[in-house]
Nucleic acid binder design. Structure first.
Length: 273
DNA sequence: ATCAGCCCCTGCTAGC
DNA sequence: TGCTAGCAGGGGCTGA
């Protein structure tokens, strides 16, 4: 599940290879993987355009092309963007191949939830899903005070609140569970019941798990890999995610697994209050 | 405005 | 062994 650290790792690894290369040919093996263009097809529109930059916003990757075009990629659950220096046979679930002036990018997604969306560069940030994103947690503009202001009117479970991309961008199921464990906060707590001290702890925990996640090149729990096909290492650091029924690494208590916000949630009933 | 619940999709696993 | 039901989940959408 690519979350902020995984998407950032993909961005960095892709940037090593494809900046300033041109897209010579697009092979659309499953048309449902691309959306958002008008008139000419995705293939015709991006053909011949150079890739000028790759940025990240939340869990989205933003590719700026020439002539005022950009495309936005979202991996959702199982999406991968892998660079191959030499031409490769597409895998079973490779939906889009971008053949570049040197090498090619394969967009592969088993569950077909991921998307590439073509937009005009200047309208990109007004694109609805990007426009509603909350602050970048590792940049200026996110602080304990800001987090507290955003949690204050919310009555839903703090775990569900952290998954809301409008609250803070880029946190998903793995890092939400890990951050709540580090902060010692029970996931079912109503968001608006956190004390200022707890909000501060949560803020610190979110920043730490994301930074450590990036430093480890992400978490490869199931499918995730970066643009070089490399796995991450943060799964070794996970304290609660995916460990329901096992012993807490901190106190030995059996970790509980519940559903919150439609997502499986693991926490320690002794360490998290 | 907020929020719970459903849907999309495939592969894996538990259970019979 | 071979089948099916259940589960995994990000975000868009619907309806309360």
């Amino acid at each position: 599940m690519p979350e902020l650290p995984e998407v950032e790792t993909i961005r960095r690894s892709l940037s090593q290879h494809i900046l300033h290369l041109s897209i010579d040919e697009v092979v659309l093996r499953w048309p449902g993987a691309v959306e958002g263009y008008e008139g000419k097809s995705f293939e015709e529109t991006v053909k011949g355009l150079k890739i000028q930059s790759i940025e990240r916003r939340g869990k989205y990757l933003l590719f700026t092309l020439e002539k005022g075009w950009s495309f936005i990629a979202h991996m959702r659950m199982t999406g991968r963007l892998v660079y191959h220096a030499n031409s490769q046979e597409p895998e079973k679930h490779t939906h889009v191949v971008l053949k570049l002036s040197s090498g090619e990018i394969h967009f592969t997604d088993t569950r077909k939830f991921g998307r590439l969306q073509l937009v005009r560069t200047e309208g990109r940030l007004r694109q609805p899903s990007l426009a509603r994103l909350g602050p970048e947690p590792l940049e200026e503009g996110f602080s304990p005070e800001e987090l507290g202001r955003r949690l204050a009117p919310r009555k839903l479970a703090i775990k569900a609140a952290l998954l809301d991309q409008a609250l803070v961008a880029g946190v998903g199921n793995i890092y939400a569970d890990e951050a709540l464990f580090r902060a010692g906060i029970a996931p079912e707590r109503s968001a608006n019941t956190l004390t200022p001290e707890e909000v501060e702890k949560l803020y610190t925990a979110i920043c730490e798990v994301l930074q450590e996640g990036i430093a480890a090149n992400g978490t490869s729990f199931r499918d995730y890999q970066d643009a070089n096909g490399e796995k991450g290492a943060f799964q070794k650091e996970l304290k609660v995610y995916g460990r329901g029924g096992e012993a807490c690494r901190c106190c030995g208590e059996t970790l509980e697994r519940i559903r919150l916000g439609g997502r499986s949630t693991v926490f320690c009933p002794r360490c998290q209050k």
